[in-house]
Simulated scan of single mutants.
Amino acid sequence: MGATPSHGGHWVDTWTAMPQSTEPDNLPPPPYAKDDLVLADSTVRQTVRVSVGGRRIRLRFSNAFGSAPLPITRVSVASPAGGAAGVSAVQPGTARPVTFSGRSSAVVPAGAQIVSDPLDLPAAPASVLAVTVYLARGQSGAVTSHPGSRTTSYLAAGDQAEAVDLTGATPVDHWYFLSGVEVWSEPAGAALVLLGDSLTDGRGSTTNGNDRWPDQLFDRLRADPRTAGVAVANQAAGGNRVLADGLGPSALARLDRDVLARSAARWLIVFEGVNDIGTAEPTPAAQRELADALTAAYEQIVVRAHARDLRVYGATLTPFGGNDPYDDPGGHREATRQAVNEWIRTGGRFDAVIDFDRAVRDPAEPRRLLAAYDEGDGLHLSPAGYKALADAVPAGLFSE
């Protein structure tokens, strides 16, 4: 399987997707899901944009939420046609087989993940890879995926793992099973991990445009030689909360898996909490209790991350004025947002503060997003708004 020597470099997470349990509406459409069996004798091709590059890569596949083993029959990696995200074709002659302990197939136990053998395949910074998976038997029961891919994947019948283009392909805007891409990096290479919700997952960004704020932040960092080696690992999911499970486990529950276990993680940005506020009852008592619990949870995240030598940066929560249902008539949730943001700014628990609230709020009405940054619902951002978030992150934080 070609082991990688430990000297002269290390593995760095250059792309990640937070594993989630797949809800019924996000399962593959018929005929790819039938009778409690998903993707039997089927191929899924998905594209991902890496952050930092490297001369070797390896892949991670997750069955974290599977209720049965995941039988992977064949996997290939290729350059997508035109180097673009969200396309079904690959460049002829670029497909390379992926192995697991020297074998072309693998079975991932329920609740587990698997790491592929290293592959001598140089990946350039900000390049797009096409990962194609064929499942002969399919998977029964629950399925692990990342529904909010904002990237088009393709499903096709039969074994088309190394096909240049897929015959009879069905587009779906989800990622399935694939949870990480690592590159073999120089010793100084390290990863910034992002813990967040739909605002970091990219709701409101351009499908196949890779213009979420994490993507735009990486583009900024890559342009500066001092930060060009900083990888960005986006571990966010729409609907996620800090305290309670929702769409995916809470941030407290998934911290070990999604942050502390990431390869070469050195920094963490915590930008999460709006869903906790927005789903708590809009009464003074409930919101006071929520604010206390949320700030205590932030302290716990800092303590646990510091134990693994990560520097932790807190991002203020952005406005949701005018959003239905989060913006309650009495303004109790807005008062909690302001209190939590004041704690983030002045509490002294984070190693640094990133003021996302200030970056995107309307100066004339600070409880609302600036109209040019509003995706349309008063909560989520447009690509221009995500650029404002990316620009608000001081690059100097990643020289420490």
Rank of each mutant, 00 (worst) to 15 (best):
L178V: 13
W175A: 07
G189N: 11
H174Q: 09
L178Y: 02
L194R: 06
S185F: 05
E162P: 05
A163V: 00
T170H: 12
W184Q: 14
Y176T: 00
L192K: 01
S179P: 12
Y176A: 00
S179R: 03
D165M: 11
D165V: 09
E162S: 14
P171F: 10
L194W: 06
A163P: 09
H174I: 03
T167L: 08
E162Q: 11
V181N: 07
V172C: 08
G196P: 08
Y176C: 00
D165R: 15
G168C: 06
L166R: 01
A163K: 04
A163R: 11
W184R: 15
V183N: 10
Y176G: 00
G168H: 06
E186K: 13
G189T: 10
F177L: 12
D173H: 05
D165G: 08
H174V: 02
H174W: 03
V164S: 14
V172G: 03
Y176L: 10
E182R: 00
L178T: 06
E182P: 04
Y176I: 02
G180S: 03
G189E: 11
W184V: 07
E162N: 13
A169K: 01
E186M: 04
E186P: 02
L166T: 07
P171E: 02
G180R: 10
G196S: 11
V164A: 12
Y176D: 02
L195A: 07
F177C: 02
H174T: 03
V181Q: 04
G180P: 01
T170K: 06
D165F: 15
W175S: 09
W175E: 15
L194E: 14
L194N: 12
P187M: 10
